[in-house]
Simulated assay, not measured.
Amino acid sequence: MTDDPSADVGSTLVLPGEIRDAILERARDGQPEEICGVFGGEYDDAPGGTSRVHSYYPTENVAESPQTRYRIDPEAQLEVFERLENAGEEIVGFYHSHPRGPAAPSETDVDAATWPDRSYLIVSLSPLEVGSWRWRADEDRFERERIILSA
């Protein structure tokens, strides 16, 4: 259910198994709509770097078409960023689900990506799969990222 460790990947995202499981459960409960949220922890933007998720913040999907898109309310996003700062954590990245699509960035995801070098974790429910990608703004593309589950 995670990336193939032998796949051609750049960076690494260390994700606690309990956070992955909570996101999977929320994605199942939220279908047919996409769910979304923010990751906090230790962020490493170096090529081949490792970011570590310590916390996650579920947010409401306020997109006009939540079955095929996600959008985090800007005010809610700022509140999450303040909570992260108060906790001494950095913005590691974001997550959302594709209830009927692959665990890979869609064209809509590419067009909406705005946080350079941050992780974008995508949960596919059909087939059940979790993938993570880093947005490389200087190259205008997503780069596949290895996921390592931690305790």
Rank of each mutant, 00 (worst) to 15 (best):
Q77S: 11
V14R: 15
P99L: 09
F94G: 01
G10L: 00
G131W: 01
L121V: 12
R20D: 12
G40K: 00
T50C: 06
T68R: 11
F81V: 09
P74K: 08
F81N: 07
L125I: 06
S55A: 15
G30A: 11
D140Q: 11
I148D: 10
E34F: 00
V53N: 04
R26M: 12
E82K: 10
F39I: 05
D138N: 11
G48W: 02
D138G: 07
E85Q: 13
R52P: 01
I23C: 03
E139A: 11
I19S: 01
D111W: 06
S126K: 13
A113M: 07
V80W: 05
L13W: 03
A22V: 07
A76H: 10
A112D: 14
H96M: 07
P58L: 10
E89H: 13
D138C: 01
V9N: 00
R26F: 07
D3Q: 10
R134D: 00
H54A: 14
Q77F: 15
P58D: 10
S65H: 14
T2K: 09
R28I: 08
R52E: 11
R118Y: 04
E75K: 11
S124H: 05
G30M: 11
A46C: 03
P16N: 08
D111E: 15
V110S: 06
T50G: 03
P102C: 03
S126W: 09
G93I: 00
E33F: 12
F39S: 04
D8H: 08
W115V: 07
D8T: 07
